[in-house]
Design a binder for these strands. Structure first.
Lengths: 346, 346
DNA sequence: TACAACGATGATAGCGCTAACATGATAGCG
DNA sequence: CGCTATCATGTTAGCGCTATCATCGTTGTA
């Protein structure tokens, strides 16, 4: 056995972070650290003069709070985890803008994750984000992996699923994509189109487009028409739209209208028709989805469905904040609706 | 005086976080917490079998590491602060995409901040982000408030400024906007335009557009032409472009070409010209900046300048990562260049 | 055979902050 | 006047993790 030693343990030095700590601020202000902490985080709980002294000390020392320490001690952070499948799609950006605006105004910081339409990546991201003790989670869509559901089942913070409506984990703000598909199909039938091609891109990932197709198909089949589907590989882009139009023209078979899964595709087709000297809607009617400004600036204007994306983000954020501030739940689900914009393209 | 009391202090209970901790994982695996920590964060420093036992325990208990605790103990996080002036502008989104892709692949998480073109907001964001012990800061542009510079002066982590080139704080990846402005102006002169209107939007905020105007003006003045400027209020949008075109037509004064500050404005003008039955470039030549896909799909195709935005993000991220991994600095500054795309609009 | 070198693991002591409780002073009230 | 309520502040004890140094075999080397 080794001999026992009762000497004092050698002084160990940690990497000094250089940065002043709350304790130094407190010393400079002549108060205890907890009072300094309160002066910064709960000003109303501290005498105005004391608070002023603390703030002066903060200023003078250039103190920057260590948020990881605060988060550890209080078991919460002002992070909101936001998970979207893509940044390349304007639609998500606009929702994010709505979220960010509203959350930042309340002092929350968004932690943005991009799954790239990969459901396992979503699990990884959520796992990491939970590790930061986020105040809430906002995720685009209702589809999650089993692992993800298990992880979230034991989580007691608000979960907000945006974009579509359905059986949600907790809160839900979105619109009915199937109904949107039906709506456009009805419009096309009204315009006399009996054979309408639906053109989508990577619809296994973009399953909301698949939902719209389902609605579209339902209406057409009820009217005794069939509902051919063309699925392109690249995600919605102008080029892909042109390709979709070419395909439709090549195989024609009586197709008089194309219902595109989104405005990028539709506008791509419209501009391509223009270059090719085709008349829209006489040679081919074209419809989109999203209601992007671009579609309203081309000639003919694009018939499309506008969804209130930024508003969806705002509303989602507001609901989450309401939930964070009072446990009272007002409504779990909000349908933000959509609007059929009829242009001259159909 | 109060009587002394030697009783044991009453047991205090903290809010139990329910979540298993590293200690519980370690107990389950029959190792010490530090070994469990190493098994997760530095696998090569732990025996393969031990590591496997730890990972099994992690799995079984559904352990999620508390990242705030780790960050506090190690004085670092895998956060990268990214600050942009706007999310409404595709340009920044594409840079962010490049950054995110590259950083996420290396296990870094982006903390995204939006200044809304407000230089004080930038200071606030940076302050918050420093509080999270970020590994690096990426910010769009070289302009910062004094407070911001002071704050960053004492910060020893990599700082990357993207978008434009110039006197940078640390690392810098971007392009020369003044030269881009010159380049387009030269092209317009070559095409025989002697009176060219520059149309921008909110150029006090979008100072890179102002730099392009400066270059544009320099070239025109050297050629003995003047360089009128029209500044619109709303940020680059299709509508504003239409408005710019109308303005130019109303006040004409021999203007034969418009150099727009960006492609959104330019395309808006182009589409508006189409609606109005004007011929581009015969009635009015139109040029843009950015090289967005849209401009290449309209007829006539838009003359513009393409900047490698996503590549800029990737390159910036790579440089930062290189810097984080080895202190060795290779190059502080990278010019990613630009490319003049000549369409039929000029 | 002695000893440095290394590999695997552990004990200890914080990181910087805040929750929970405690204290003392002042105010309010019948 | 004694009692509780409220306010302003302080004391203590962690939050859950990792840096640092220590320990103990096992090798490799002279």
């Amino acid at each position: 056995m080794r001999p026992l030693s009762n000497e004092a343990p050698p002084a160990r030095r940690r990497r000094g972070s250089e940065q002043p700590t709350l304790k130094e601020v407190a010393d400079a202000a002549g108060v205890s650290p907890i009072t300094a902490s309160r002066a910064l985080n709960a000003p109303e709980r501290v005498n105005a003069q004391t608070r002023a002294r603390v703030l002066t000390a903060v200023e003078r020392l250039g103190y920057v709070p260590n948020l990881a320490a605060g988060s550890l001690a209080s078991a919460r952070s002002r992070f909101i985890a936001v998970i979207v499948p893509s940044l390349a799609n304007t639609v998500f950006i606009e929702v994010i803008q709505g979220l960010q605006e509203t959350f930042e105004a309340q002092g929350y910081q968004i932690l943005l994750g991009n799954t790239d339409y990969d459901i396992d990546r979503e699990y990884q991201l959520i796992r990491t984000f939970l590790g930061w003790s986020c105040s809430a989670l906002v995720t685009a869509g209702l589809r999650h992996s089993e692992a993800c559901r298990t992880l979230l089942a034991n989580w007691d913070k608000p979960i907000m699923e945006v974009m579509e409506l359905g059986e949600a984990l907790d809160l839900n703000v979105g619109l009915d994509h199937t109904e949107a598909g039906r709506c456009m199909a009805r419009h096309l039938l009204e315009r006399g189109h009996r054979r309408v091609l639906f053109v989508g891109a990577r619809m296994s990932g973009d399953y909301r487009a698949a939902m719209r197709y389902a609605g579209h198909r339902e209406v057409l089949e009820q009217a005794g028409c069939d509902a051919p589907l063309l699925e392109l590989d690249p995600l919605g882009s102008l080029d892909a739209g042109a390709e979709g139009l070419e395909c439709a023209l090549a195989h024609r078979e009586g197709i008089s209208a194309i219902h595109f899964a989104n405005d990028d595709l539709a506008t791509g087709a419209l501009l391509h028709a223009q270059r090719r000297g085709l008349s829209v809607p006489d040679d081919m009617a074209i419809a989109g989805f999203n209601g992007l400004p671009l579609g309203q600036h081309v000639t003919p204007r694009l018939t499309t469905i506008r969804s209130p994306r930024q508003h969806m983000g705002q509303l989602a954020a507001e609901e989450v904040i309401r939930r964070l501030e009072s446990k009272r739940v007002l409504r779990r689900q909000h349908d933000v609706g959509f609007e059929l914009l009829i242009g001259e393209s159909t």
